[in-house]
Amino acid sequence: MKLDPKRYAEMTRNATPHSPVLKDCLWAFFVGGAICLLGECLRQFWLQWYDTELAGTLTSISLIFLSAAATAAGWYQKLGAKAGAGTLVPITGFANSVVSPAVEFKAEGWVTGVGAKIFIIAGPVIAFGTLASWVWGILYWVSTKF
């Protein structure tokens, strides 16, 4: 065959249709913005009774609940197929990445399916986020000694 892998990689690159970047970004902006706006509404609601920190936590919990409900109803997937990063990046996307494997792997059992696979997507986020905060903790502790 008159083809070498390097040349083929170039051919493949040229043959790959471009993503409709502008359309993708508009979807991401409006859906992601709307989720954050909803978050702000919830935050102002909780701020009526609680301090900033607790209101923040309650906002996250509220959004996670809504995302879980939308995921179980099959709506989050449909929105995510269009909104891309708009549904991925907010905390609702994190919740979707925990809820969807739980629902999906129910067929393999509550312990070996739901329990074992619940962090199959979100696991790295928690693992590396925690690791990064641990590193920052050490640096911060060292800085307090001077």
């Binding site: 970047v21 954050c36 706006l37 978050g39 891309g84 708009g86």
Partner: peptide, 23 residues
């Protein structure tokens, strides 16, 4: 105003994610 900036800043952070996906 807080609501407006929540929308714009949140949306912009998502757009950065979308650009990373596309590019």
């Amino acid at each position: 105003m807080q609501f407006f900036w929540a929308f714009v800043v949140g949306g912009a952070i998502c757009v950065i994610g979308q650009l990373l996906i596309d590019y």
